[in-house]
Design a protein around this nucleic acid. Sequence first.
DNA 1: TTGTAAGCGTTATCAA
DNA 2: TTGATAACGCTTACAA
Lengths: 343, 343
Amino acid sequence: MTTKKRITLREVAEAVGVHVSTVSRALGPNTRHLINSDVVEQVIRASRQMDYRRHAAAYSLKTNRTKTVGVIVPDITNAIFPPMIRGIEDSLSTAGYLAIVGNTDGDNERERTLLDTLVGRGIDGLILASVERKDDVFDLAASESIPIVTVNRRPDRDSVHSIVHDESEGVRRALTHLVSLGHRRIAMIAGPQTLSTGAERYAAFVQSRSSLNLDSDESLVAFAQAYNESAGEHCVEELIAAGHTFTAILCANDRLAVGALAALSRRNLICPKDVSVTGYNDMPMVDRIDPPLTTIRIQQYRMGFEAGSMLQKLMNGESPAQVVVLPVELVIRSSTARVLDGR
Amino acid sequence: MTTKKRITLREVAEAVGVHVSTVSRALGPNTRHLINSDVVEQVIRASRQMDYRRHAAAYSLKTNRTKTVGVIVPDITNAIFPPMIRGIEDSLSTAGYLAIVGNTDGDNERERTLLDTLVGRGIDGLILASVERKDDVFDLAASESIPIVTVNRRPDRDSVHSIVHDESEGVRRALTHLVSLGHRRIAMIAGPQTLSTGAERYAAFVQSRSSLNLDSDESLVAFAQAYNESAGEHCVEELIAAGHTFTAILCANDRLAVGALAALSRRNLICPKDVSVTGYNDMPMVDRIDPPLTTIRIQQYRMGFEAGSMLQKLMNGESPAQVVVLPVELVIRSSTARVLDGR
DNA sequence: TTGTAAGCGTTATCAA
DNA sequence: TTGATAACGCTTACAA
């Protein structure tokens, strides 16, 4: 119950026997050089010993910087986000920034309120993992003219800083892999076309399919309304209902793939014997499901880390590369297999 | 690119033609009554129209309150936490509090750093979901004399405010359910005994087992080192290796149960035909696994909400009930079935 | 009912 | 190299 009193600059100054401003300067890495090094030494020792910690509010009031950035994710439950957040935190904390992460559950209203609270608190920067191709919240945030970086997705707009993955390459690899196993009639469960990942993966599919000379039947594509399991199930039903045959399904996302797997087994179609399935993201646990999922691995942690660094540059007034495109990797597991009968 | 300028009290005051302090009072719900209601009206209208927002740092500096609370969870990936966090946020936001949630991944060092950053920033209160029975971080936080509420778990200490569930009742229900299906030899996978939930559920098992007159063979209990799937698998191996027979396993947690299921099927034991399994928590997805898990449902959202309310009372200097114990519910699904042969 | 003024802990400008 | 001082935007005695 020892109510620790907060130590202020003034107290440190008194202890050392110098003026407050001297202490302030001695403690700031950028102003330290102005002060006699013995004094700096003394000040640092004293502040350490007295357990001085800068009063964040006072600092903010004076400098108008909070050393805080907001992070908005669509769904914290989605296992790809925690590693990403960790990456963001790790890169930001080195420079003394704190990340406040908020979760929108895809609710646009909630996202707006969240942004409002964050801006109200005064954040120095914003990382958006939730952005849609046309995004009010992004526009709103941008109009506040605080630095923004989007991760994983990007809006249909120029001059947006973002960290994304090489979507075409990912789709191309998955498709090439399937083709190398003898598949020719390959269906796709495409993601929401309102998201850049959804649109780009679909475009890449169309593109790669033709460059690989595959049957390009439009009815072999089902569009999911959301990146979740039930949308995946629904799409499989749709594909089957359309009456077309296929020996493989390329899914725009692991959760869609998980749903697809469930729907297939409900139809007594065995994966991979009857139909091969690929996912996208390599989220945690997909190596533990039945069958372990062949998927495209993205760099979750790194994506976050890079976003943090990019944002820091922006906040320092530098001009980092506008877009960083991270490479992806094909992870082959047991949900894909050689096609059985010649076709 | 319209750099919106921040509106200050002074500007609102000028617009209305009164003094800053009048505006301040008119805007504060507690001081509003001091001001002529016409003026209040005017001030509110003006501030709305000018989009005034209180400068959080200035407010904090003056009042020494940040309207911010820290929330520390062990593992955000664990699906029981997001609903809980949502509950916390919802209850706190009504009073203008912002929750900053941090994730420790069970890393004690990280937890300490996190607490440090939070305290450094000045939080008005703390919610700990990560607490162990003996917990340095809790002690540290307590020594800062900021209000703390623990959720879901509690330390072995008196005078700790917390929201927990009725663990004995939960275990009792699960066990009674199994007994009602004819099971007599029931194993337990107990959770880490360093956590209150682990210890309490184990104690309840021992207690209920004797009051139900079951075989009380100590080797029918395996202790998991952590609440995760691999620990669950490991424990099943241990139980089987011990060579004892059992027709059911009561698991201290859903993730342990998921692991147990995996291990059983690897041993070609069918659940629930050969052995019934129960979980604990009713976390998302356990109704989708194979077989859908019989489990004890805890109130994740409500737990968070109550924690938020309790903390608010504490922060207001009130004295809420020290411990709130929430009731649990048995959810019967397909992982439990009547025992086959008389035994 | 409203105004005055002090002060929260910093940083930054200016002088010394 | 250091000190004095003002200012950041707000709340809150105290006065009027």
